[in-house]
Write a protein that binds this DNA or RNA. Structure first.
Lengths: 232, 232
DNA sequence: CGATCAGTTGACAATACTCAAATACTGTGG
DNA sequence: CCACAGTATTTGAGTATTGTCAACTGATCG
């Protein structure tokens, strides 16, 4: 977890969704308070209840944010990729972290300490607006996620997820599950056995073709119907 | 839907969670752009996809915010009570409303038009901080909600809900379901039949006593265990 | 090359949903 | 204030989906 300071950081921050459109001066200030650190895969960043002394932006790698039920089962809330941030909630709500976070890959993360950051934002309404928009966006995603989770049946949730992935990756009908199937099961709020069965069922029914971690959408229209109706 | 202007509004806004701690001058400005309107019960406020030209604060009554699945089943996202706001996400994300909203009771709502409001906030970073904290708080609640929904079994979700209600109402072991049982079922992501059966099961098992819409918690410890473990 | 872990498959149990029908409530018009 | 219509709630019977437990395969990594 080696900490360094980096000149190119300034420029990179400006490409981040949180700080897109922020003026150069303020980017410089931001990079002045930022701390860059490297992490190995599967390393804990923070746990539920830890004091929120600042928040993070992913520079490289991926971070998993999740809740843990008492019997150890996890529900994944987000997978955070490069340019995305996590942990801001604790900073603004003035409370502790509401979830757990660990790296999935070898990663480098930018840390922004709470007090310094709050001081910066107080002086810059434009910065505040970026943040408001980003939080609103996230809230909107959660709305969709709650909606998806209440599609009670797993096939519907899976279909919706595959379509979102396909759109995001924009590589035609070919897509990559970006998680292990076990992790994906957790993300969809189910277990690996069930996911496995449903994937093969969708393949048998001619919706998709499975090649390991790569999926080919064969019948997009029926997949979309499934995602809409929520049941098979 | 009669619109009026109100002097006491200014003072009331300051007691709102969104604007707590805001200085008098700014409260005056806020009340200057605010529009107060009355609604009958079960009236539509906005629907998913409507343009977000502003947002609302509940002055009296309650508003239900929900998603609708294609076959007409609803998943309640929030019940908004006096002093709470809804619809801000559309304002800051610069997009349309991500859900539906209807009044549950006879209600009066304060409407804050987007453009005027954005202008005010731009001039006042302090105002922005209140908003950031409020949105963060909401995000935190959604985190908990997603966690609760993924406690797949209904008894666990119900137990957790009863305990939250009891805490919120702070009237010892006696609590009021603040929704019809049908609405509560939807909020918990299930159907009335299932809720009914589980309520009587909890009563038979000596966890609670049911008197119509009033519940008495008989064995708080076991109820808490149920909420923790998520299964009966 | 053995150990560990992800993924798959089968048998079974449990939970929750659907459909149907009976009963209790609510509000309204007369 | 009462009767009626329209809801809400409850209960029953059957079905479906998903979770649990267990065993097996295959890949990966020391």
């Amino acid at each position: 977890m080696f900490v360094e300071r980096d000149m190119a950081l300034e420029e990179w921050l400006g490409e981040t969704s949180l700080f897109a459109g922020v003026e150069g001066v303020h980017l410089r200030e931001l990079s002045g308070i930022a701390m860059l650190a490297s992490y190995k895969p599967r390393v804990n960043i923070f746990s539920l209840g830890d004091p929120g002394n600042g928040f993070y932006i992913v520079k490289e790698g991926r971070v998993k944010v999740f809740m843990l039920s008492p019997d150890g089962k996890e529900q994944i809330l987000h997978i955070i990729g490069p340019g995305e941030s996590f942990g801001e909630v604790a900073v603004f709500a003035g409370k502790s972290f509401p979830a757990h976070a660990v790296t999935l890959d070898k990663s480098s993360l930018v840390f922004l300490p709470r007090d310094d950051f709050v001081a910066l934002v107080s002086a810059n309404p434009a910065l505040a607006f970026n943040l408001l928009a980003a939080l609103s966006q996230r809230l909107r995603q959660f709305t969709l996620m709650i909606d998806a989770l209440s599609l009670k049946e797993v096939p519907g949730r899976l279909a919706a997820h595959l379509l979102r992935l396909s759109e995001k990756q924009a590589s035609g009908d070919r897509l990559l599950l970006e998680l292990s199937k076990t992790q994906l099961a957790s993300f969809l709020g189910t277990i690996p056995e069930t996911l496995s069965r449903i994937l093969s069922k969708l393949q048998r029914a001619g919706f998709i073709t499975i090649k390991g971690s790569e999926i080919i959408i064969v019948d997009r229209r029926r997949l979309a119907e499934l995602a809409e109706a929520g049941k098979f």
